[in-house]
Design a protein around this nucleic acid. Sequence first.
DNA 1: ACGATTGTGGACCATGCAGTCCGTTTACGA
DNA 2: TCGTAAACGGACTGCATGGTCCACAATCGT
Lengths: 189, 189
Amino acid sequence: MTAVTRRKRADAVRNRERVLEAAREVFAEGGLDACMDVIAERAGVGKATIYRSFPTKEHLIAGIAVDRLAHVERLLTEALEDEDAGAAFRRVLVAMAEANAGDRVMLEALRLSATVPELAEARQAATAALERLMRRAKSQGRLRRDATPDDVRVLLSGLTQTLAAEQQHDTRLWRRYGNLIADALGAVG
Amino acid sequence: MTAVTRRKRADAVRNRERVLEAAREVFAEGGLDACMDVIAERAGVGKATIYRSFPTKEHLIAGIAVDRLAHVERLLTEALEDEDAGAAFRRVLVAMAEANAGDRVMLEALRLSATVPELAEARQAATAALERLMRRAKSQGRLRRDATPDDVRVLLSGLTQTLAAEQQHDTRLWRRYGNLIADALGAVG
DNA sequence: ACGATTGTGGACCATGCAGTCCGTTTACGA
DNA sequence: TCGTAAACGGACTGCATGGTCCACAATCGT
């Protein structure tokens, strides 16, 4: 019963990273329907190895989404420092749209937050940050008063799915749509 | 060699209609991933019967999309009669958003227009009508000059996929987003 | 250096689904 | 009414894919 705690083996850690990276790429290219064999191959790893780090495909997807959400939250938190909340809001929207060029995973994956608590938590945090930024922009009269974080999610998510499914990689296009959405929500900036 | 032309059997015609109706319902509820067995069951028909009218699943989907596109084209053509093209444009957008509540098929199906010529044709016609309406709205200064029919498609399509996937049935919500998109494109009306 | 233990990979299994086959049934025309 | 050709339905096939198993290999603590 001497519970000797051994640290995780080096190859295991390395492979987990490789899998995540490969999954990001493959899902970005082919959507969430991409199959596990392809990811394993791209990662240069057996299929079973994936399942040692992620119990199901959904967990793998959620893992990626959690990372991206954390990134978005960081963006939002920084944006809160900006004097001009309207401009900051628009900037974040455009940045998110740009970042999602070729990455259709995150917003599509949010439906898993019912299944994966870790994801639900990350989502909660990001939403809260967005909420704060939007409140500030409204108080400065730079945002439609009835605009909600959910509006952002719905409009961006749809945009992402559609453009990504069409293999659209032109960054200017994504930036343009980011701005259109900002316009829709009445962000002056 | 006496080529006696017999008219199609009544049950065949009836079943084709039933299949289309069932497919519309099932796809609307579960998305295009819904499987053929379910559609057959819902239509009260054997699976093979579906394949007698539609050679592949894609053709079935395209069949539905063609109908809807024809409807949209009618809407657009009527809208062209309106004095105020800006208001008419907004009205059509909202109508399309409303009509797509619970029906995620049409815009998602457009990618099949490469495969099914009939669909490509219907799409072409609808796009042309939309183009005319938008040109008119621009000339009246009621629409952003850089707005394109493709913008409408991308924004609406995304919206549809996202809201429908979330089983959102509140019509007011769809109407609201239709208006948001109209705002994004600078439709004054 | 070496044994205990953790990790690996690819063959394997189970499942779900698009599409086909064929013996049976039904509508049409005379 | 009756013969025939068209239509039917559900069992069946083939395939793709998520997930598991286990004999073997790499790693870590001593």
